[in-house]
Amino acid sequence: MRYNLWFGVYEDGKVEKSSNLEESFLNAENEEPAPFNISEVGVKIFGGRVEYYTSLRKVALAVAERLVEQELKREDRYVVALVKALEEVEEAINMLKEKVEDIRTVKDSEIVADFEDKIEELKNLKKKIEREIEEIMTKIAPNLTEIAGAKITAKLLERAGSMERLVKLPASKIQVIGAEKSLYKAFARMKKGKKAKIPKHGIIFLHPFIRTLPKSKRGKMARFLAAKIAIAAKIDYFRGEIDESLYESLRKRYEELRRK
């Protein structure tokens, strides 16, 4: 059996040492657990316990530093691009569906089936993009994803443009992101001294804790959720650790409002 170790390839008791340790470190993948102890083999190769662990640490640090930098730089921009693409794909699906219905009412031809295949394909693409967004969001914004879900978080991120900008937004802005049109309309009416309805929620309306409440309570919940989102964004950006109390307080507030 061959085993890919971080310092080379092991086969029949012999090790062929790697010439690029960082590369072999990232390819040290094996289907089965090794039947020997890697450090014992390694200590012989590196000529001592201290030497073995010193090299291992050095390579591990170098690889991790590189990967972390790559990921943090790119991932939020990648999500922003994905969300935009997702919206286009969704629109394309709806548009195609409409057109194929138009055709079908006149004549159910072979082309209709072709259209349906294409729609199916696009739906699969849509699912794939959604999964990718979810995976990255849990990685770069674990708290936001936990309290608001990947979809809402990704949309907020897209509107803000980057994590850095999202972090700087106040909760009151987060609450109405996505409802700008009606917000500014309301402001314009107020300026003229007329009565105006200020929107209570934008994108965050998609959150089940808001959607499932009676209309009169949604504003309260939206305000509370937006405040928690603002906090979660800051934790994600600066600390990155999960804060369990966030979701808990959200759920409590929701139940309180539902009972009243």
Binding site: R57, A60, L61, A64, E65, L67, V68, E71, L72, E75, K139, I140, P142, D236, Y237, R239, G240, E241
Partner: peptide
Amino acid sequence: SAKPFEKLLELA
């Protein structure tokens, strides 16, 4: 997760 890992790297 890359974000907390940054902090972990300082320690490592």
